[in-house]
Design a protein around this nucleic acid. Structure first.
Lengths: 339, 339
DNA sequence: CTGTTAGCGCCTTCAG
DNA sequence: CTGAAGGCGCTAACAG
């Protein structure tokens, strides 16, 4: 493999001139620059990432950090991962995957102290997230994908669960739905303070009132059997229900089944929305699901971009960006049937 | 951050002694070893990954390489990714994600020439895979997850589609099924020589005969609407069909819908198997699907382990390992109804 | 069993 | 605008 030395020799200039020509950190005369570029081309030279890192104290690698015991990591997370990799690549960075196996602070600490990565993006953020104190103590730039209410001053991007809920309810309300059932994630997740669940819960209560909706919220474990039972019970107890808003991809098929079993059609008798979901999930079903889709690409590009900006000290604001979901109308929503 | 120098000073030994104590590349007296460990503990020392890489010419990083235009990357791939990361971690390696955006050889070439990674694992391998010549030319260790029949001498792990098909058919046959429909992936995938599709096709033909099954194969695009049409047609044309073997996760819900619409019950009237699938997919449905599940964990651990062995030159065989899927009986299979 | 030292390839002062 | 040279932190000969 050719090194910067070979390039310098071939171009008849010094090593540092080549280095500066590459980084652009200082002006180089046009002729030398041309010579250097010519030499690099002929040698098919690529800077050696590791050597560059050692000298510059920046590795151009960031980590995507998952907490231990990934509870139902699904299709949406998958697209976040690939989006993160592509966003990093676009900016000349590499992305490594760190999947913690324990909550032992030393596990993460040791990973960081290897100084292999310049910064990290935290996935699946919870309130009082155990990772945040460690990242702070190690003074490494980081960025939350999600919010931790006990760390309100950190950088984060997140879905705007409040606005998303408002929009979903307003949308259904506009279609004439008055009796709406919101199927949230599990009660355990709620009690553990998991942001999406907590915030959506509060938003549902609030906007049900504001929009004069007769709402019912159910917590539901992430499996179709529980989804079935939950929906069946709702249909039994509140037969006037005309819409389900389901923020729990893994119980969807159970909910649908319960509706069908009851002899109700979608979207004729009942409307169904997969909330904070993804196209990949929606199109697994027939009929395809109307969804409020997480802005995975935008959110992740932002997170990666801002993290890198922070690493490179381009600026120092604390960006906190919330993005509501986008409605994608497919085949499971329609006007309420009021008879 | 403390360096190896600090450790050496604190322990009262030379730098190289510390280095060798860490790597174990040469014997160290018990007393010195204890001193060194003590010093490392007190300083909370971690070797600097980058410096170590530069000196040793090994980065302890491997790449997971995805081809451009990820056609339907799903739940099963997701578990492969996390499995790969964990397998790498267990062996002291890091995993970076490389998602190519084009088929331009230079894109991959440049990635490799940075010398950031010691080896790469290729996902979604096709026949005549354009990445293989590049990897060879760059002389970097690599490992295929999947097979390329035009590169029969490369290292690979893959699902054994032949044996898996045999088992699935034998299993159904054992339940009394005689009229079985195999729903494969798309005809395009077949024609482009995509291994799983081609091999399963051949195996189905062969074992249908051997097992005296009246089989019908359908190619099917990866969406539920096509799944519905395909299954509906089969049910129409061959009403004696008592089992569906579906190697196409994304069309499953359509197939199920077609069966239900026809007024047939699962598994009472018809059995259904999700073939070469995953638990994550199976439990998205209600009733949960009987599957032949890809051995994602075993396959990926093997790939990562062998790749690392090859990097570290532990041995030089060419491992080619095929692993059949495992049957997980859930709720969609039962004895054939022969009336 | 242990220590000394020359790099690994590049970046970045410092001196022109 | 350009060059020389000293590291970055660690590994691995080489020399005891």
């Amino acid at each position: 493999m050719p090194t910067i030395k070979d390039v310098a020799a071939k171009a008849g200039v010094s090593i540092s001139t080549v280095s500066y020509a590459i980084s652009g950190e200082r002006p180089i005369s046009v002729e030398k620059k041309a010579l250097i570029e010519q030499a690099m081309k002929e040698l098919d030279y690529r800077p050696h990432a590791i050597a560059r890192s050692l000298a510059s104290k920046r590795t151009r690698i960031i980590a995507l950090l998952f907490p231990p015991v990934e509870r139902g990591i699904g299709l949406s997370e998958l697209s976040l991962i690939t989006n993160a990799a592509m966003a990093a690549t676009e900016q000349g960075y590499h992305l490594v995957l760190w999947s913690l196996v324990s909550k032992d602070p030393d596990e993460l600490r040791h990973l960081i102290r290897q100084e292999l990565v310049d910064g990290v993006i935290l996935m699946e953020v919870h309130d009082n997230d155990f990772r945040i104190p460690i990242l702070r103590e190690q003074r490494i730039p980081f960025f939350l994908f999600g919010q931790d209410s006990s760390a309100p001053d950190e950088n984060f991007v997140d879905t705007d669960f409040i606005v998303s809920m408002y929009r979903a309810l307003a949308f259904l309300s506009g279609l004439g739905h008055r009796e709406i059932c919101f199927i949230n994630q599990s009660h355990d997740a709620f009690q553990s303070g998991y942001g999406p669940v907590v915030r959506s819960h509060a938003a549902f209560e609030r906007f049900s009132v504001e929009l004069k909706i007769s709402g019912r919220e159910c917590f539901c474990n992430s499996d179709p059997a529980t989804g079935f039972r939950t929906a069946a019970e709702v249909l039994e107890q509140r037969p006037a229900t005309t819409a389900f808003l389901v923020m729990n991809d893994r119980c969807l098929s159970g909910v649908i089944k319960a509706i069908e079993k009851k002899g109700r059609t979608i979207p004729g008798d009942l409307s169904l929305i997969a909330h904070v979901s993804s196209a990949a999930t929606a199109t697994m079903f027939l009929p395809s699901l109307t969804t409020y889709e997480m802005e995975g690409h935008a959110l992740m590009s932002l997170a990666v971009g801002e993290l890198i900006a922070r690493i490179e000290k381009k600026y120092f604001e604390v960006p906190q960006r919330l993005m509501p979901c986008t409605l994608v109308e497919r085949e499971t929503t329609g006007a309420a049937r009021n008879d």
